[in-house]
Design a protein around this nucleic acid. Structure first.
Lengths: 122, 122
DNA sequence: GACATAGTTCAATTGTTGTTGAATGATTGT
DNA sequence: ACAATCATTCAACAACAATTGAACTATGTC
């Protein structure tokens, strides 16, 4: 992944409205949601939601497809995973021991943490 | 993690300069680097680098400590891991089978992917 | 065809961010 | 004390992002 791609994705997620929309689409993967549902669930005006959905689709973080007079949006989860890999790939110059230490210190349940430095390589 | 915290972090990573700085600090974890080294390695003017380092430390993505006349910066990797967990936590409403499918489609080596939905729960 | 519904685009306003050079603060060495 | 080095702050400008209401397009219903 190129830096330019990654920054574009982080910029998309730097808006509270867009982050909420994206996480909602992640939660409702793989079927996604139609725009009206999103607008109601998050209480975002349609006009503004359109603006943010356009940004999400333009960055490829979401896909859209028409369904009659509705528009269905779905999260691009593989791209999300690629972005996470980009952020963690060179962690600690590849020292698994150090990464494991960080994982422990984070206090997060292991099943919600990325492998980070290959410390959990299967 | 609160939405506000997450958006602040993504906003930090949405600048090419800051993303490069942060990834460099991740790579050089846990020792970190001093400002001058970062400036030279990434070819960013000191003035501008200071601006971005301030943003990084203010968001807690990096810590700083004086060393004589130098200032050493270190990446806050646990916070990075928390942010990743926040983004992936509710993925697919917790359907491991669906998540596994996404992981396969992503084409990324498994050791660089987060567990996502607990599909790799130890 | 007329009407309602679902979304999008447009223009304008408001606010925020990135970058630069010059000036300033802080620490070390002579 | 003086100069050199490392880093930060400041002011100013340019560029960009978020939000809103009104107007518009497209689809489905009577």
């Amino acid at each position: 992944m190129e830096t330019k791609t990654a920054t574009a994705i982080f910029e998309i997620l730097s808006s509270g409205a867009r982050l909420s929309v994206f996480r909602l689409l992640v939660k409702y993967a793989p079927d996604g949601l139609i725009a009206g549902e999103i607008s109601r669930m998050l209480d975002i005006p349609k006009t503004n939601l359109s603006f943010h959905l356009k940004a999400l689709t333009h960055s490829c973080l979401a896909s859209m497809e028409r369904e009659g007079r509705n528009t269905r949006y779905k999260a691009n989860i593989p791209l999300m995973l690629e972005t996470i890999a980009y952020l963690t790939a060179e962690c600690c110059s590849g020292d698994p021991g150090q990464c494991l230490q960080y994982r422990k210190e984070s206090g997060i349940a292991p099943e919600f943490l990325p492998p980070c430095c290959g410390s959990e390589t299967p």
